[in-house]
Design a protein around this nucleic acid. Sequence first.
DNA 1: TTTTTAGTTCACAAAACACTGAACTAAATA
DNA 2: TATTTAGTTCAGTGTTTTGTGAACTAAAAA
Lengths: 150, 150
Amino acid sequence: MSEKIKLTKEQVELVEQYAVFMEQTNLQPAMAKILALLNVADETELSFNQIQDTLGLSKSGTSQAISHLLATNRMEYKTKLGDRKRYFYVPIHKWKDTASRHFDGLEKYRNLNHRILAQRSKKTKEFNEALKEMTEFLSALHKVYTEKIK
Amino acid sequence: MSEKIKLTKEQVELVEQYAVFMEQTNLQPAMAKILALLNVADETELSFNQIQDTLGLSKSGTSQAISHLLATNRMEYKTKLGDRKRYFYVPIHKWKDTASRHFDGLEKYRNLNHRILAQRSKKTKEFNEALKEMTEFLSALHKVYTEKIK
DNA sequence: TTTTTAGTTCACAAAACACTGAACTAAATA
DNA sequence: TATTTAGTTCAGTGTTTTGTGAACTAAAAA
């Protein structure tokens, strides 16, 4: 029988909105919905079947999405003695690691812009000045990160 | 005849790396390369033909990419009296507007997480606590934005 | 041993995406 | 008026993405 989880109307709404947001950050729909569910549901640890049934995905789709989420550290699982299933959860307590990866991307962008600026013709003064201001703002952001998280 | 622009080896390298970075943020390859070129090239204003020839794109591909970049405010153009062409450029002086849009996305994420937290069962104490910490960091980031840019 | 559970793997179908070439347009030039 | 310039539009093609169902596996339970 189905192991579909009961969600309030508000939870369904939140799952959908969270998933859409995640899709916009490059995540595939199925993965986005799984993450959304694990963030919103009352229970933070759900089994393969609970995920599949609640979201109405195929078995293979669920398997592939879960594998990818595990491989990219967006999800983890635990087991329970005397129970063959895995229980999947979002390692939200590691949110600082996730944030770090985002700031690494930002730093890469800052570095690219810095290199671009370094080799630019001195003739395009306004352009160069704006580019410099922007990289300085990126540095300021990075500083917040090192102070608050790193 | 071709209006291909001359780029140093380093500039070619930077165009490619910048474009790859942009592709990773959801931009289509052609658009990513156009933005990269306009950031790196000595001249900040390039014509349709200079862009097409330098990047080796088709005319229609160039047209469609430019239209989309203009529609999404990632590019603008100016004209010159007595010249029928448009000269395209990256409005880098508006980098604060671009940053604002990014922070709007972050704020949306913070708000979603805040709503999720507000309706969560009180039983998952650790999860809720971590989620709260994270939204607080998102608020701190947003504060930097309001102080430095807005 | 046979069956059930908890998945994994894979070939493929449907849809979306990215780009191309060819035909077209509208304004300027000859 | 005819031609050139500076693009635009669109149908189609090749590629990539997502997800499906069917067959498979490995361990546990009956």
